[in-house]
Simulated scan of single mutants.
Amino acid sequence: MKYTFLPNTNLKVSKVCLGTMTFGEQNSESDAHAQLDYATEQGVNFIDTAEMYPIASREATLGETERYIGTWLKKTGKRENLVVATKIAGPNRGMGYIRNPLDFSKKNIDEAVNLSLKNLQTDYIDLYQMHWPERVMNMFGQRGVSKIDPQWQENFFEVLTVYDGLIKEGKIKHIGVSNENPYGVMKFISESYNHNLPRIVTIQNPFSLLNRLYEVGLSEIGMRENIGLLAYSPLAFSFLTGKHLNGIQPTSRLGLFPQFTRYSSENCVKATKLYQEIAESNGLSLTQMALAFVNQQDFVTATIVGATSTEQLQENIAAFEVTLSPEIIMEINKIQEVFPNPAP
């Protein structure tokens, strides 16, 4: 296992981050514990979750993922050896059962942090992230911003002030954003500089062979400002395993939750077939090539991988031992030119 540091921190993290959003929906508590056991045995010390998990989010299972991780942490006593990240849900997603209103007010952030601490059975959270922005913008399958959200009032300073208090209390160590745009990232950075407030250290955005939009604008900011990308959906909801090329598998996440359509367009299918040909011609599985490609990007701090079985997790973690040659990267980039970012 290879390790790095979360930017501007002393937190050493594995390049593989265990994603957990299936815990509580597609995975039972015993499944979740088995995955956590295996991942940590392989050297993974970085775990990512969220208050709204599992996916697909619903009131009946809200918080189950954090609770499964919490029971495992209590059982194993491994908390001090791990970097645990979680997220606060933002508005605009029809999830008033979490809190109402769903915003980043001091009251709501305090409530969310305290509940996550309780669920995770821990005294502190290493990395606390805003799951998506308060403002309506392009995220979760939307490519661009053509209109400005007239309801939202800028509050970057106020939000950072709340986090400053929580860091001083010892409840959280560092903060990050997720599903953000260059505008939001730079506003958070400037407010931190101007007012000596906590600095975001990571951004958790999608990045894969089917979605390289992070490279447009955000990658330069990340590298120049030393903000690490935690790349999620590197296998595009398992589309980049190749198993859906002849139709969506009914027991898969895409089969169980057909509302997740961002990776199943016609162009995604066409591009995936071409990527599979590159992988096979070089003696690799598509899974290996897809994960190795993400891992090799300079702006990626860690890649978030999840699975619905320990067998899948084994294959995913093993893929990080693969290094792609410059020739393979060139072939990949040719496909990107023909089908640029088919999954928004």
Rank of each mutant, 00 (worst) to 15 (best):
N81L: 14
N81A: 12
L82E: 09
L82T: 05
A85M: 07
A85R: 05
K87V: 01
I88W: 02
P91Y: 02
G94C: 08
G96V: 13
G96T: 09
G96P: 02
G96C: 10
I98R: 07
I98H: 08
R99Q: 09
N100Q: 07
P101Q: 02
L102E: 08
F104N: 14
F104M: 08
S105K: 02
S105I: 03
K106E: 09
K106M: 01
K107V: 09
I109L: 06
V113D: 06
N114V: 05
N114P: 03
L115A: 15
S116K: 01
S116L: 05
S116N: 12
L117H: 06
K118G: 02
N119I: 00
L120Y: 00
L120Q: 01
Q121S: 14
Q121D: 15
D123W: 00
Y124L: 00
I125T: 11
I125G: 03
D126N: 06
Y128V: 06
Y128S: 04
Q129A: 00
Q129C: 00
M130N: 09
H131N: 06
W132F: 11
P133T: 08
M139H: 14
F140N: 13
G141M: 08
G141C: 05
R143S: 06
V145M: 08
S146K: 12
K147C: 13
K147E: 15
I148M: 03
I148N: 03
D149R: 01
P150C: 13
Q151W: 07
Q151K: 13
W152L: 09
W152G: 00
E154I: 14
N155I: 08
F156T: 10
F156Q: 10
E158Q: 15
V159M: 14
L160M: 05
V162T: 13
Y163D: 11
Y163T: 11
D164Y: 11
D164T: 05
D164E: 11
D164L: 07
K168F: 01
I172T: 08
